[in-house]
Design a protein around this nucleic acid. Structure first.
Lengths: 181, 181
DNA sequence: TTTGGCATGTAAGCCGTTACATGATTTA
DNA sequence: TAAATCATGTAACGGCTTACATGCCAAA
């Protein structure tokens, strides 16, 4: 119940590209994937266990140093099938945005309130920060076209995220300007 | 833990505008608010109880028919203060999008795959549907300017939601076109 | 040799969904 | 009078976060 375990499919999808240990998955959520999805290690490790119990993945241990072991997981045939099924399945219905700015604006509901102007300034600031951050990542990862072609999906969603931030900023600034005149 | 209870603040914010019973709040989530936030009645009623225990709200019973009672809640001074604090508090950091389309695109990662084209078509379809729905709601609620002025916050976020859908559709169609050429 | 990071794991507790449940009321 | 809706509630359970915890390793 609650929300369907999308995390399971994402881990399977990552493992379909390459074998990974729990900490590798953790690092992906902290790095390249972090703008789009996130999970803590305290959720990742139990999920890996469950998936192994369910026969979707297997692991072999690899030594780090002389004693420390890491478990590197590989998809089984059943796991490959499940992730393929998920990728073929239609997208679920769109969820409500659940955005804090949106809700505050709805609740304030007063064009003249100084709080509304403050809210817009905050929202503009945090999206400008995010926009810059994403643009830096684009420069870092995809400044040459070969990289873009090789990591099509990643390049695509990053480009999209940047455009979304820019569109949002444009709207925010237009609306803010109309407030202060 | 988990997520901070934004629901609590939203209920307080709604009650700051007018007194409401649990089922009224439920109806708001099913109607005008549903595009931006949602909660089930099985979460609303216990939350109202807790808020009453915490002294944030009070209720008086109103008869519906001859026997059935509904509890109409009112903000206390403490409740007013808490919702005001929340509205004054800076916005929380932006969360990862956790969007299914985005994750599938990231995981497929192959420009030539027919699955990617299918994914784009699905995403275009569901956003076109949503866009039309929102435009109809705008027509219904805000076709005259008096309504827009009176419900500034609502009009604002609805207008914004429509623009966001349009921007997203524009991007999706451009990208899809570049895929199929 | 100490400090920070690597790699893995468990426990407590709130959030949110689905399902179960009841009595009253309106409507066809 | 039967069916749908109103109004309120409880129970079970998975998702997700925060915090607690351990042993090993590399670098300063």
């Amino acid at each position: 119940m609650a929300q369907k375990s999308v995390l399971r499919y994402i881990i399977l999808g990552l493992l379909a590209q390459q074998d990974l240990a729990g900490c590798d998955i953790k690092k992906m959520f902290e790095g390249e994937l972090g703008d789009f999805w996130h999970s803590n290690h305290s959720q990742i490790y139990p999920e890996l266990r469950k998936m192994e119990t369910d026969g979707l993945i297997e692991y072999h241990t690899v030594l780090v140093g002389k004693k420390q072991e890491k478990k590197v997981y590989t998809l089984t045939a059943a796991g490959e099938e499940l992730v393929s099924d998920w990728l073929h399945k239609p997208l679920n219905p769109l969820l409500p945005t659940r955005d804090e700015f949106t809700m505050k604006l709805f609740l304030l509901n007063d064009r003249e309130s100084p709080l509304v102007r403050k809210l817009f300034r905050e929202e503009i600031a945090r999206h400008e920060e995010k926009c810059l951050y994403l643009q830096n990542r684009w420069q870092l990862l995809f400044h040459n076209e070969a990289e873009q072609a090789q990591h099509y999906g990643h390049a695509c969603i990053l480009k999209h995220a940047i455009e979304r931030e820019q569109d949002r900023l444009k709207w925010l600034k237009t609306e803010y300007a109309s407030l202060t005149q």
